[in-house]
Amino acid sequence: MARSYLFIPGNVPRMLQNMDVYDADVIIIDLEDAIAIEEKDEARFLTCEFLRAHRPENLPILIRINSDEDSLMRADLMAIKGLDITGIVLPKTSLAQLERFTSMKPTNTTDLEIYGLIETPEAFFELDKIAKHPRIKGLMLGGEDLSTHTNIDKSLDEIAFHMPKSLLNFAAKAAQKEAIDTPVSSLDDAALIQGIKQTKTFGFDGKLAIHPNQVPLINTHLAPSKTAIHEARRIIIAHEKKGSMRFSLDGKMIDKPIIQRAQKLLDKAHRYGLLAGDAHAL
C-alpha cells in the first residue's frame, strides 16, 4: 500500500540522487516519456550507475520502461538486469502487452512486480483479466494518453473520466490489487487538492505525482484522517477488551470485516507516522 508514486526522469542526476529526500512512498524512474529518444542510452546508463552506487534503503523503486519498439524495450530489460528494484511500470498495458513483455528475452525480470499503466481504450475491455494476471501488482491510470487515444477532453468536464476511474478501481479491487490514480498535470496546489479529492472519491489507494512538490499534499490527503484513526482505535480497543469478534459499539454492530478494516487502517496510519508518538506527516 502506498499513497504517492513519484516519477523521476532517469536522466537528471540532481533528481536521481535526491529521490529519497522527496518523501514519496514509491519512486518511478522514468525511461519512457520523460526521456527524448536520443537520450535513452544516457538515461539507462545513469539510472543503472545510480542504483548500483546509491540505491536508497527501504524505498520501493519502480522503473517505467519503453514499450513502443522491441529494441528499446529489450535494451531497457538488458540494462535493468540484476538491479535492486521493486518492479517495473509497463506502459500501454493490455493482455497482449503483458504477453509480449513476459516472453521477451532476456527473461530476467520474472521476480519483478508489474504495475500496468492503463492508458488505451482497448485495456478497458479486458481490465478484469489484466488485473488478475499473476504478475500484476497494481493498475495505474494514465489519463493524458487515454485522453489522446479516446478523444476525451477533460478540460471541458471531468465527468468523462468517471467511468474509467471507477472501472479501474473495481477491476483492481476485485483482484485485490492496488489502484493508482492518474497524476495532476498542473503544479497549482488547488488543482492538486481537487485531483486528490477525486482520487479518494473513486476509491483509489494511491496517486501518481509528476513533481516532487506534489508529494506532501498527496501523502497528507491520502493518509487516514484523524477522525478515521480515532474511530478505528476505538473499535480495536473495544475488540481487545471484549475478546470478541462480534459486539456492539454505540449501537452499531461490529463484526470481523469491520475489525479487520480498522486494524488495516491503524497499520496504514502507523506506516505513515500518524499515530501518537509517530512523526508528523512530513
Binding site: 529526500v21 522527496y22 518523501d23 512538490n213 506532501p216 512523526a279 508528523h280 512530513l282
Partner: peptide, 17 residues
Amino acid sequence: NDPLNLKIARLSQAFLQ
C-alpha cells in the same frame, strides 16, 4: 519552490513544532 529546500523547510517546521 525548490523541492530540496522545501524539504528542509518541512523538517524545520516539524522540529520547531
